[in-house]
Write a protein that binds this DNA or RNA. Structure first.
Length: 688
DNA sequence: GTAGGGTTAG
């Protein structure tokens, strides 16, 4: 009975049954003990003393179970001691050691154990195949597999899972065919692996043919297979079918729930994902990760952080690296440096080991929060780097306008044998553009073997910013591919910077065709007209927007304070400190007027009527955010603001003035780049 | 009666 429970039930079921056994005054014997040890899990490491008390330390099955328990918890040194003390070692004892060493990633010891075995069985060989499979060494997995004197379904499955994990669908399916040709009947494990392999494709046709086969062969669908199918349908976008399978299941494990949650989260249906998350009986760390990542990937950064805070507060489960990667990235998107640092503190406190992508997320976060020194420090100190590490830091240099540093890093990565890719060059060209390094940018562009369309966008932006409008136009006309909105967008922005009406109109007319719904293009064009005082044309663009039903994107800006995001929109009065904010701004506005600053009507398509009258009061989101920043920050502290759109030209002047009048450094990150305002100057030169 | 193979998250 206990054996049966240990196979189908949970740890609690086994312990429950054992308690009843004890109630009858029945002491565990050498048959019961291994089952108990196996089921004891993490809390069971003290079990050895109990075993000694009962006098079963010399039973080979009990010993094997103890060894296995230590091995499964990574205590290979303890397992080794038990193993060395066994006088009559059985194959099973060797096998425990081999798989134990593989489990903790010790290929050398695993190999050594396997090589010194006096005899091997199919389990020993399969453990080796599985070990190589799991660490991605398919060559050796295959080699060992071929050498096996005898194979089992488990051996095939071990090999298959290697292909599945590497995403090698074609090769994997070939192995699957090979397996059936050799007369092995796929079992449920095989099907789970094959289904998961196909999930990567997201191909509904393939999914349906697979289900057809399962039906034809009258395969019993256990919980694992059904879960794999849920994931398959979810990844093909058929959430309804996935939900149907989910509903039909009498027994669901946490993975089943998670597959469903992440399916909804990926497809952007966060409400349904959250409902399942709230309803599921036993959440694990992956449930939290799926939900948090779901919010983060769909742009709900603040909600992702909020849920993470809840995870930490309730202590239901400890966050792991994956959790922190999502949250750190969300902090980066929001520019929430204090929150980001708090998460880093948690990583250190909880001793969460970071992988390369963990460190990469830190580089991203610090870069997007304006701390390039910290970003560089992470890059310097991380144990190893990949292409993404370089690209993240280069992108950081790009939004900061640190062109030379970006170029230096490009040379360095080449020296270190890391091949730059499409993304690298987007970063490099953007950095050159923002830093005004047009000569270097051109050289880089010429050096790209097959420039992608995005590289043309960057190049148009670079030439445009540098004032080479004719050349920018020529580049657009001579592109080997059809220009997309990004290319014309760069051209339009160049026209805005240099107040070039004809070019602006040309770019805008293309953009109005390509993306008539994008309000940004209308705003840019009208800004050009406004900068020249052509109010009639401004009005015309505004009417065009109205006729086409295009709504201006609501601009919002935010400041982080006390681990909270304080967000503002133009004319906002909802913030609890609204009165003080407006007072601060009004005072500054007064002094500006005294100094001869006169508001003009450059900033068009306003959200608030009031702005027409008063240049500071009731005004743009970034000014409100700065007003709040002035209130809550300490003297000498940098005021950091993030805006979801471009900083408007009117504000740009105003912020320069604010920095001069208050003697404060103000950093604004908009959707394009960082603007560092200090003593009446800004690092960004493309504003009037 | 031991030991090997499976599904979910960045």
């Amino acid at each position: 009975m206990l054996k049966l429970y240990s196979h189908v039930g949970s740890h609690d079921d086994v312990i429950g049954l054992f308690r009843r056994m004890q109630a009858f005054n029945l002491r565990p014997d050498a048959f019961v003990l291994p089952i108990l040890i196996k089921s004891a899990g993490k809390g069971g490491t003290g079990i050895q003393t109990q075993v000694l008390k009962l006098g079963f330390e010399s039973d080979r099955y009990v010993r094997n179970a103890i060894m296995d328990m230590y091995a499964k918890h990574g205590a290979m040194d303890v397992a080794r001691k038990v193993f060395d003390g066994i006088p009559d070692k059985a194959v099973a004892d060797w096998n425990v050691m081999v798989s134990g060493y593989w489990r903790c990633g010790d290929e050398v010891e695993a190999r050594c154990m396997f090589d010194s075995m006096p005899e091997r069985n199919v389990v020993s060989w399969t453990a080796m195949v599985s070990g190589y499979s799991k660490c991605g060494d398919l060559e050796n997995a295959r080699r060992i597999f071929e050498e096996m004197p005898e194979k089992s379904v488990a051996s095939w499955n071990a090999l298959l899972s290697g292909y599945a994990q590497k995403g090698l669908v074609e090769d994997g399916l070939r192995v699957f065919e090979e397996m059936m040709d050799s007369g092995f009947r796929p079992d449920e494990t095989t099907w789970v692996t094959v289904i998961s392999m196909c999930s990567v494709r997201g191909d509904l046709k393939l999914a349906e043919s697979l289900v057809g086969t399962l039906h034809q062969r009258r395969i019993e669908l256990n919980c694992f297979v059904k879960t794999a199918l849920i994931d398959l349908y979810a990844k093909c976008g058929s959430l309804e079918t996935a939900q149907q399978i989910f509903n039909s299941m009498a027994f669901r494990n946490p993975v089943t729930w998670n597959a469903m949650i992440s399916g909804y989260a990926r497809s952007g249906n966060l409400t349904l994902a959250r409902q399942l998350f709230d309803k599921m009986p036993e959440r694990n760390v992956i449930s939290w990760n799926s939900m948090i990542a779901g919010y983060a990937q769909n742009g709900h950064f603040a909600t992702a952080i909020k849920l993470f805070k809840e995870m930490v507060r309730t202590k239901e489960l400890k966050p792991d690296e994956v959790t922190t990667v999502s949250v750190i990235s969300a902090c980066g998107h929001l520019g929430a440096l204090e929150l980001g640092k708090w998460v880093v503190k948690l990583i250190v406190e909880n001793q969460i080991q970071l992988s390369i992508s963990g460190y990469n997320s830190l580089i991203f976060m610090y870069s997007r929060c304006g701390s390039m020194e910290e970003a560089k420090k992470v890059f310097r100190e991380m144990p190893s780097r990949d292409l993404v590490s370089y690209n993240s830091l280069i992108a950081g240099f790009a939004i900061h306008g640190h062109g030379h540093e970006a170029l230096e890093l490009l040379s360095r990565m080449k020296e270190e044998g890391v091949e730059p890719d499409r993304i690298t060059f987007i970063g490099i060209l953007t950095a050159c553009s923002h830093a005004g390094l047009s000569k270097q940018g051109r050289q880089i562009f010429e050096s790209i073997e097959y420039p992608a369309i995005d590289h043309y966008s960057c190049m148009v932006d670079l030439l445009g910013r540098a004032g080479e409008l004719d050349e920018a136009k020529r580049l657009v006309n001579n592109m080997p591919m059809k220009p997309h909105a990004g290319v014309y967008g760069a051209l339009l922005n160049a026209a805005r910077i240099h107040k070039h009406v004809e070019l602006g109109e040309l770019a805008a007319s293309e953009l109005f065709e390509l993306e008539p719904e994008n309000p940004g293009n209308y705003v840019l064009l009208s800004n050009i007209y406004a900068s020249l005082g052509r109010w009639g044309d401004v009005e015309r663009v505004w009417k065009l927007m109205q006729v086409r039903g295009v709504k201006k994107t609501t601009a919002c800006s935010w400041v982080e304070f006390n681990h909270q995001i304080h967000q503002f929109i133009a004319g906002d009065r909802s913030h609890e400190r609204t009165k003080e904010i407006y007072e601060v701004l009004e005072k500054l506005g007064k002094r500006m007027r005294e100094l001869g600053y006169i508001a003009d009507k450059r900033c068009v398509l306003r959200d608030v009527e009031e702005e027409e009258k008063e240049e500071m009061v009731g005004t743009h989101s970034e000014k409100l955010a700065i007003g709040f920043g002035l209130l809550v920050s300490k003297a000498g502290e940098v005021i950091r603001v993030v805006k979801n759109l471009r900083v408007c030209g009117d504000c740009h002047i105003a912020i320069k003035m604010i920095s001069k009048l208050t003697g404060r450094e103000i950093v604004v990150r908009d959707n394009n780049r960082f603007h560092r305002f200090e003593d009446g100057e800004c690092s960004c030169k493309d504003y009037w």
